[in-house]
């Protein structure tokens, strides 16, 4: 058995699938980095980032079935929504708040992902409300017998909200096909987890609902995929919800309006770089002989092209018409105004 076969066999994935996952992690990172450049250049007013979270998101979402399953994302879910089907152009349309932004038509801040075409429910800013929406989607899936799984994401800071308790309790009672992913990056904006949680692991709370709580290293893309695959299988076969806690690092400030050096030391920030999922996954695949220098070069070129295309495309698109600002407070008959950008 070669190293290549061993790496893929351990999680049931072929080399093409592993490379696709690597491409997605790298693509999410590249778009995210471009968002910051655009912000610092004064082109877009706000960025909220997923850097450091991409490995967990790509690994976990790769276990789902886009087009069938549902996702209720949160503001760091850039890699998750890309993996679920959103395009770089659509991410950038939201970043520029353009009329054809599928998430909100430029109405919401960037990072509030949603897309009817992808079964990605619109998300808001009050944290943890989305857990209940995922439970409701899962309830509907169960009642309608659709075989769908609803997955939702949040940070460990959100885990203290009452909606989390109410949602997990209900999902557990009814064995709903739901997965809650907690991306624990150790900070709720500036507050470290020792001041948010009395125990180190959010996953420990799962026992209180009688459901599995699984911890995974968020820099271990394949490890994240493995636990998610088990959770999806459990959900799809009537086994009920799973709480997955991915230990991740937040490589950026909370948002473009935050200065994290005020509350994180230079030493800590430097050390956190070692937990970056991107170089780790790259090295893992390179060591296994899957990611050759040729393939990596080709991917880098492709990704740079996608990011440039998405940026110039979004920048060229029209802003929303002020006359449309009163639309869709309620349902109304009106021709569609935009939508996906491919």
């Amino acid at each position: 058995m070669t190293a290549t076969e061993h790496l893929g066999a351990a999680v049931g994935l072929g080399d093409d699938q592993l490379l696709a996952m690597y491409r997605m992690v790298a693509l999410a990172r590249a778009i995210d980095e471009r968002m910051w450049i655009l912000n610092r250049a004064g082109r877009v007013p706000f960025v909220i980032s997923g850097q450091g979270h991409e490995g967990a998101q790509v690994g976990i979402v790769s276990a789902l079935r886009p087009g069938l399953d549902w996702m209720v994302p949160y503001y760091r879910s850039i890699a998750a929504v890309l993996t679920f089907g959103m395009s770089p152009r659509e991410i950038m349309l939201a970043q520029y708040a353009k009329a054809s932004d599928p998430s909100s038509g430029g109405r919401q801040m960037p990072g509030h992902y949603g897309g009817a075409a992808y079964n990605i429910l619109s998300s808001s800013s009050p944290v943890a409300t989305q857990i209940l929406h995922a439970a409701g989607i899962a309830l509907a899936a169960q009642i309608r017998g659709t075989g769908q799984v609803a997955i939702t994401f949040m940070g460990e800071g959100s885990s203290n909200q009452g909606d989390v308790h109410e949602g997990l309790n209900f999902a557990a009672i009814h064995h709903l096909p739901m997965i809650l992913v907690v991306e624990n990056n150790g900070y709720a904006i500036s507050v470290p987890s020792v001041k948010e949680l009395a125990l180190p692991d959010v996953a420990a709370r799962a026992a209180g609902y009688g459901i599995p709580g699984v911890i995974v290293d968020g820099a271990d893309v394949l490890g994240a995929y493995r636990v998610a695959r088990e959770a999806v299988e459990r959900a799809r076969t009537g086994g009920g919800p799973t709480l997955i806690e991915a230990k991740v690092t937040r490589l950026t400030p909370h948002s473009s309006d935050d200065q994290q050096t005020k509350y994180r030391t230079a030493e800590e920030l430097a050390a956190e770089r070692a937990r970056d999922p991107l170089p780790r996954f790259r090295e893992q695949l390179a060591t296994a002989g899957i990611l050759t220098p040729e393939i990596e070069g080709r991917l880098a070129t492709e990704i740079a092209g996608l990011v440039d295309d998405a940026t110039s495309y979004a920048e060229s698109q029209p802003d929303p018409d002020p006359a449309s600002a009163t639309w869709y407070v309620y349902a109304e008959d009106r021709p569609a105004t935009g939508g996906g950008a491919g």
């Binding site: 209940l132 929406h133 409701g136 309830l139 949602g167 309790n169």
Partner: peptide, 12 residues
């Protein structure tokens, strides 16, 4: 939860 799950169930 009663309202929040209703919102999600309505979406699906």
């Amino acid at each position: 939860m009663i309202v929040g799950t209703s919102i999600g169930a309505a979406a699906n």
